[in-house]
Amino acid sequence: MLDLLGFGGRGWGLQLLQGMGMTVLVAVSAYLWGLLLGGMAATLKLSGHRGGRVAADVYTTIVRGVPSLLVIYLLFFGGNSAATWVATLLGFNGPVELSALPVGILAVGTVSGAYSAEVLRGGALAVPHGQVEAAKALGMGRWLTFRRVLLPQTLRYALPGLGNVWQLTLKDTSLVSVVALVELMRVAYLAQGATRQPFLFFTTAGLLYLGLAGLSGRLFARAEVWAGRGVRRAAR
């Protein structure tokens, strides 16, 4: 039975590895997109601009209040219907289907961004305000203060929380399988359908996710040590 996981003849090993590669690709891209989106939302939330603050609050509240699966369905099916509508305006006929990969990354990243926003906001608030004033007193401009004082420390404070968001994003990528993107979960589903061995393949998929989570967790722990070098701790 285990030869089904191998790389020869009947084995699904290669497909599983490719699926895992796709999972990592979707997770990393979505996470980065989420960081960008979350960074912008956090900046808006902390800015004095009222409209921006409300917009960012609406984004994080809505996205964190509805299931990720619904966000994926909305962007995928809604995106398809919007694209079809635009295509009709341009004189094309028939339904348009968007490619699952970019839409999946966009959807998972949008969810990830809402969580990142809160983590980054908390990190920025942890930077002592006196430091910003000191930077100003030294004649640093807003951008320079942001780049040299605020950003590095925000990232350090936010790192543990960002690690949690990463784990969340990694697990959320499995939902993209429902819109037929061939990532790890989808490969496992196809494989069990072909071989009638659901337990074997879903256990394997679970173990691979476990491996990815463990490996990336270790990377984040390392990053925390690196970011915290030279910082005295209250307790250890």
Binding site: L175, M185, G206, Y209
Partner: peptide, 20 residues
Amino acid sequence: VFRSTPLLVQIFLIYYGLGQ
């Protein structure tokens, strides 16, 4: 194990996997 794997894997394991 249950916190580090996607919920979807857990559902599929129980729904499809056990019936095997």
